[in-house]
Amino acid sequence: MKLSKDKLADFLAAIPGKTVFGPQLSGETLRFTPVTRPGNLCPTVNNATVPPKSVVFPQTETMFRFEQGATDIRTAEPSGETVLFGVRPCDARAMSIVDNVFFWDVDDPYYLIRRTNSALVGLACLDPCVNCFCTSMGGGPASTEGLDILLTDLGESYLLEVLTGKGEMLCQSAEKLLSQASSADKEAAKMLQEKAAAQISRQIDPSGIPARLPALWESPIWEKISASCLGCGICTYLCPTCHCFDMQDETEGEESRRYRTWDSCMFSEYTLHASGHNPRPTRRERTRNRINHKFSYFVDKFKVMACVGCGRCINLCPVNIDILDILSQVGEQAL
């Protein structure tokens, strides 16, 4: 199928009863927010600063409300269906990876509702950024994992591939806006996708990393890697596979709420006991935990690495700590 770009606004408008989120600038930050004017969408520039996990796992979300002194607890579980438009393949894969955590053992009720009620319309990356390394992590600029529809930008139009039943439902309401894709269109999309994959210059073979990490527990590399770390937490906040959260109570006037909010294993308070004991007292232990969690513990538990190679932690680190550099060091250390 094919969707002409001048019909994109109509396509989004034709989706009944769902809130469409897409990458839009708020200030200087590109993030997934509700689309009110399709003209504001920025699907073709670089990937969003804030990954679309923020739609199904909001940075801050109310869990329940209660009044001071009252014994009534009112849940604030989410409702409504969403469509995430313009999701990059790496971020869609990341959401499938995070599903493992929220659906492990006991379902997380808040995430479950938001995730089940969301559909993902992806956009193939045709101009990967300098620090992208998705092809090393089992994905690619046109990977379809986690997506319901994949769009590939052909210039005047998008090639539209329906991948799931959810994707099919989205197209049903917009059938009149779509045209048949020719074999030339498909060929053109394939070439663009292959060209993009070839453009990704940063590569690593991470297959040996999970096995090497336990032996490097006391290695001096952790001290070296973390020496310049400021502990700002940006690498985890904006990581599409990071899922850690804090829970706090807050009062405004008569009403209070318990909310949860993104947290980071790079913060000292994250593991600080009330007694003052901290099992991960310095940035050395916290950096070691971050890398071990992504490339060893997560693999032990869920058989997949918690990294999709989106490059955000490299692009955004204020002191240029580079996860690929860390992985290279892990790979090269004598055991």
Partner: peptide
């Protein structure tokens, strides 16, 4: 053992020792 915990259901991340 005791660890700082928030969710109690293996989602919030902080109480891990290894995996």
């Amino acid at each position: 053992l005791e660890m700082k915990m928030k969710c109690g259901i293996g989602k919030c991340g902080r109480c891990n020792i290894g995996d």
